[in-house]
Write a protein that binds this DNA or RNA. Structure first.
Length: 424
RNA sequence: GGAGGGGUGGCAGAGUGGUCGAUUGCGCCGGUCUUGAAAACCGGAGUCCCGCAAGGGACCGGGGGUUCGAAUCCCUCCCCCUCCGCCA
């Protein structure tokens, strides 16, 4: 949530930013609510002052044995007026804040302005897409041929968009999770955490999934909890409502499954592992001092790139334009890997700087050198998302004989196995 | 699930209807002393809101109520602890 002052002091800047994002919000209406609230407050606080003064006077009169009946009746009448005005001010504040919660973050000045993904900018690419002397298969064919994933049984036990990793597929999935966690903890300085996979409304609001994205999440109504769409939610909320005392920056990494309803995208990419309702992901989260957050964003992207370089998967880094930026982000890089079976770039990582947007909503503060408290800046990035990485590894590593060669770095995680071969 | 206890400032911990935004200790900031540090001593400091300011208001887990007046009494919700039950 933004500081209310943005409505009072930076209204034009806010309107420009919302236009760049392609978002329609009547911010003038919020300004009206805010002005009304302030007008009522001025009046009601004068009355409260009067009440406090006279109440103290009643206390003194009683001790002196004087009659206070008339004074009491007077204060009682003040009380009625105060309740009424308090309720109105409260209502205006709630409406104002509910509206503020729906205003997205302001894009950073370095973010290109554009309407949609077509205006995103490729900032660098790594690796050469492999050329095949035979027509490359899709991961769906490879998974079925090598018995790595069972799509039909996943759909039957749960529903469309749910799959079962089987045999070496399950093994490979687990190896990838462990490889990525090891890389981030051993070489990039992250602390590993293993968080809950369900979060409450306050946490979901803190990172910005609520109120806007409610329909995209699975909700457990009996307990009022949401299944996490990303480990960003529990890990960022690790410090919710706290003043952080440990030295910054703080870097955490977590494995979690991610649950997404994908409401509104029915029918798109429904085959295979490209868009599924549950997928595994290793996430990185940082809590940093405001002055350093953009440097930290660059190193976050590099940490994610290291995963792909180690796995020898060709990728490109894309800077999102204002129209493609997610709700809470001020700046975001996507990393996309090349999937030859799909002939497409697949998004496997999103690295964002939220500045103080999430910290303000979640109440995450630190103590500055001058002793004052201030909101931290939060960042997160996938390091990386697994289902699509799985796709790319299979499609990139496939051989003419139908086997799949795995990158060297994984061998140690697979008891030395370097190749998945079809059963005869 | 049942019974009981508890949630107060950065932390610990007093305060059971009136001048309490709140005693005290630790920690923090400034100063004196010291070559420097520690100790000792002196001083300072909560957050938010309204207001140009003077000043005023709110905040003792959240919300509601009683009262002239609530940290203090009542209701309700949330969270934590102890014991019992159930259980991977």
């Amino acid at each position: 949530m933004h500081d209310v002052r943005i409505i009072r002091e930076r209204l034009d800047e806010l309107k420009t930013a919302l236009r760049a994002r392609g978002v329609e919000i009547d911010v003038d209406a919020i300004a009206v609510l805010d002005a009304e609230r302030r007008r009522i407050l001025t009046e009601v606080e004068g009355l409260k002052n009067e009440r406090n003064v006279v109440s103290r006077e009643i206390g003194r009169m009683r001790q002196a044995g004087q009659d206070t009946t008339e004074r009491q009746a007077y204060v009682r009448s003040l009380g009625e007026r105060i309740s009424e005005l308090d309720a109105r001010a409260h209502r205006a504040e709630e409406e104002r804040d509910a509206a503020l919660l729906r205003i997205p973050n302001l894009p950073h000045s370095s973010v290109p302005v554009g309407p949609d993904a077509s205006a995103n900018v490729v900032v660098r690419t790594w690796g050469e897409p492999r050329t095949f002397p035979f027509p490359p298969k899709t991961h769906v064919e490879l998974c079925e041929r090598l018995n790595l994933v069972d799509f039909a049984r996943g759909a039957r036990m749960t529903g469309a968009g749910f799959h079962v990793f089987t045999g070496l597929g399950a093994r490979l999935e687990r190896a990838l999770i462990q490889f990525m966690l090891d890389l981030h903890t051993r070489h990039h300085g992250y602390m590993e955490v293993s968080p809950p996979f369900l979060c409450n409304v306050a946490s979901m609001t803190g990172t910005g999934q609520l109120p806007k994205m409610a329909d995209d999440m699975y909700f457990v109504s009996g307990d009022g909890l949401y299944l996490i769409p990303t480990a960003e939610v529990p890990v960022t909320n690790y410090y919710r409502e706290e003043i952080i005392t440990e030295p910054l920056p703080i870097k955490m990494t977590a494995y979690s499954p991610c649950f997404r309803r994908e409401a509104g995208s029915a029918g798109r990419e429904t085959r295979g592992l490209i868009r599924v309702h549950q997928f595994d992901k290793v996430e990185m989260v940082k809590f940093v001092e405001p002055e350093t957050s953009y440097e930290e964003l660059e190193s976050l992207v590099r940490d994610a790139e290291d995963v792909l370089q180690a796995l020898e998967v060709p990728y490109r880094v894309v800077l999102l334009c204002t129209g493609d930026l997610s709700f809470a982000a001020a700046k975001c890089y996507d990393i996309e890997i090349w999937a030859p079976g799909q002939q497409a770039w697949l998004e496997v990582s999103s690295c964002s700087n939220f500045e103080d947007f999430q910290a303000r909503r979640a109440g995450i503060r630190y103590r500055r050198k001058d002793g004052k408290t201030a909101f931290v800046h939060t960042l997160n990035g996938s390091g990386v998302a697994l289902a699509r990485l799985f796709v790319a590894l299979l499609e990139n590593g496939q051989q003419a004989d139908g086997s799949v060669v795995l990158p060297d770095v994984l061998h140690a995680y697979l008891d030395g196995m370097g190749k998945i071969e079809p059963k005869p």
